[in-house]
Computed example of a mutant assay.
Amino acid sequence: MMKSLLVAVLAINLSVFAGVKNPIKLGKSTVTWIGKKVTGAHEGTIALKAGDVILEDGALAGGTFVVDMTTIDVTDLEGEYKGKLEGHLKSDDFFGVAKFPEATFVITSVEGSIVKGDLTIKGHTEEQSFDLITKDNTISGKVMIDRTKFGIKYGSGSFFDNLKDKAIDDEFELNVNILF
């Protein structure tokens, strides 16, 4: 009896120490993107494929998010131009989704609202930190990502001269609203 009680207490303590894993609500979570260029901007959505959030004492402590790169959708264009831009974003010039259909973010630490982790895009991993707000069962915030750190240099004024009004900003914005 005592042995069973000791095993139960250890299991409870380990689960508290390890945190509680909560799956994200895929159908209710959203990720929108904005990519800017000299002459304007484009925007759209991208779907989360999987993920979980780890809470310790009710506070965000970790998590993993998988983005389905094949779902890149342009929402500010229609018809032929929409299809062309989506195809170009999915091509090797940008995210190469045929070879890299997923991007991931794995939280490695949380200090206040600063979430640090390993972001993998096109098979390349970089440590990133973002200011994200966790309230109730939602993580939200604006995330800026420098695409050139992941080998995405197409149209970058940092790498190519004489682009003039064809230059595309190195950073793109993600607005995340993740429910768990």
Rank of each mutant, 00 (worst) to 15 (best):
G83S: 00
E80Y: 05
A61V: 06
K166F: 11
E127H: 12
K153Y: 05
G112N: 14
D118M: 12
K84T: 06
I54P: 06
F150S: 02
I114Q: 15
F95P: 01
G79F: 01
G155H: 01
N22F: 08
E171I: 10
E56W: 03
A50Q: 13
E126L: 05
K116E: 11
K21C: 13
S91F: 08
N13G: 15
G58I: 12
L119E: 07
L174P: 06
T148W: 03
V20M: 14
V143Y: 02
V115K: 00
R147K: 01
I121W: 13
V31D: 04
K49F: 13
L163T: 07
V74A: 02
K116I: 04
A50F: 11
E111D: 11
V97W: 10
K25M: 13
E78A: 05
T64M: 09
V74W: 02
S109Y: 04
E127W: 05
G83L: 01
S158F: 06
I168K: 09
I121D: 09
I72H: 03
I46K: 12
S156G: 09
I34Q: 13
S129F: 03
K122P: 07
G83P: 00
I114E: 15
N177Y: 11
T134N: 04
V7T: 13
G157W: 03
V16C: 13
S4R: 15
F160S: 02
V16W: 12
G58C: 04
T39P: 09
K21Y: 14
T32Y: 09
G19F: 11
L163C: 12
L55S: 12
T138N: 04
D52W: 12
S109C: 08
A167D: 04
A98Q: 13
T120L: 09
K25W: 09
I114V: 14
E86D: 01
S109Q: 13
K149E: 05
I24T: 11
D136Q: 05
T75I: 03
D52H: 15
V110R: 00
L10Q: 08
V53H: 13
V176R: 00
E102G: 04
Y154S: 07
K37L: 11
V176F: 06
S15T: 04
S29F: 14
V38T: 10
Y81N: 05
V74E: 11
M144I: 02
K82H: 05
K164E: 14
A47H: 14
T138A: 03
T138F: 00
K84H: 07
L163H: 09
V74T: 06
G151E: 05
K99P: 04
D170G: 11
P23S: 15
V53N: 00
D170N: 15
L48I: 14
G35D: 08
F160M: 05
T75M: 05
V53Q: 15
T134K: 08
S109D: 14
H124W: 10
G112R: 11
G87V: 02
N175F: 03
Y81C: 01
F65K: 03
L55F: 07
V74L: 00
I152V: 08
V9C: 12
E78N: 03
I46T: 14
